[in-house]
Design a protein around this nucleic acid. Sequence first.
DNA 1: GTCTGTGACGTACAACGTACGTAGAACGTA
DNA 2: TACGTTCTACGTACGTTGTACGTCACAGAC
Lengths: 206, 206
Amino acid sequence: MLTRERIVDAAVALVERHGETALSMRAVAAELNVAPMSLYNHVPNKAALLDGIAYRVMSGLELDYDPGVGWKTQARTLIRAFRRVAREYPACMNLIVTHSVELPFGIKPIERALAVTDTAGFDGPTSVRVMRAIIAYALGAQLRETDMVKILDYLPPDPAAAFAELDPVEFPHVTALAKELTAHDPESDFEFGLELFISAIDALPR
Amino acid sequence: MLTRERIVDAAVALVERHGETALSMRAVAAELNVAPMSLYNHVPNKAALLDGIAYRVMSGLELDYDPGVGWKTQARTLIRAFRRVAREYPACMNLIVTHSVELPFGIKPIERALAVTDTAGFDGPTSVRVMRAIIAYALGAQLRETDMVKILDYLPPDPAAAFAELDPVEFPHVTALAKELTAHDPESDFEFGLELFISAIDALPR
DNA sequence: GTCTGTGACGTACAACGTACGTAGAACGTA
DNA sequence: TACGTTCTACGTACGTTGTACGTCACAGAC
């Protein structure tokens, strides 16, 4: 029996195995040993299937928290929950982020984020702005990371050398930092920016 | 005479006028009153055309600066230059960001950014991390903004009311901040996050 | 005049999303 | 048991996409 759930599952698996370019109605149907048009009995169109993927993946967000801890810990927990989902479904997350699927985060995560900024002591308008800044960072970090991976794939065998061979007069910093620029530790990069953000929020006037 | 430059120009114009979904080789060819396959004499494939769009748009980045001013002003100038390009070519910028076109920023902007962090007094590895965090924020802000616009389009005539009608027990903050959440001033949102970032960087140990 | 590019073109194909009509199985009712 | 209704998987078909391939007109070199 074909169901919307099985279809979404198959789509998620397919995207994770073969990338977003492999996601077609025909491919999903083949994955389920079914005729392509059969999917349309359960999913109105491809966009809805994308929404289904987004919903399924984002449902994995772990929103529990300990009210006893400080807002910083709550904030870190929330953002790292996003990261965890991104690590679990990297290809799907990329798909969600780049196709700006409808309200990918739903209302609950927003409620949680606003609760955190409330705990931190901000008024309403400031809370909204802080939340937006954090969302921007989280989205952008995800995006930049997959970009980085793609770029490293294209680069020559020794990318650092390629950077280092640039004109050191025109690009003094890039050539000097060739090693740091091509080394890529997404997790520590993300954490660095996250702490940067949290300390900035901490310093904000109430 | 058909040239790669004219093709890229037409593609940029087409994307800005009718959105990225309207970008097809056939449409670009029609824009130039030319047969579709003629484009392939100057552009190897569609991906290369996307790269061309990215390069053309990003070339508009104003990288001049006044060495006499402090690093904060330099940083603001650099990031606002990115924003200016994004405002000038919103649809193309969105395309660039979401399709992670090859090295969209080139080397020069990276060199400039590293020069700024150098001026701010950071060592190499820290400079790279700070730059990456800022890029993540700039990308994410752009992404979030177009998402927001799209969501607002889909929402009912009075979106604030829709938010306000949620269960106030389950979503106390969202319902209380319905007005702030649906009001959208991209520029001030962006500036808020930008200042947040700069103050955080300022507070970083050297 | 012939030879050699170069670039615009036309044809053709595979893959895509999906509109539409059909057919068979499942099931409530008589 | 027989019949009508509903559901759902299917097959066919269309328009659109990117692009491989072959052709053909024209420009300049000899």
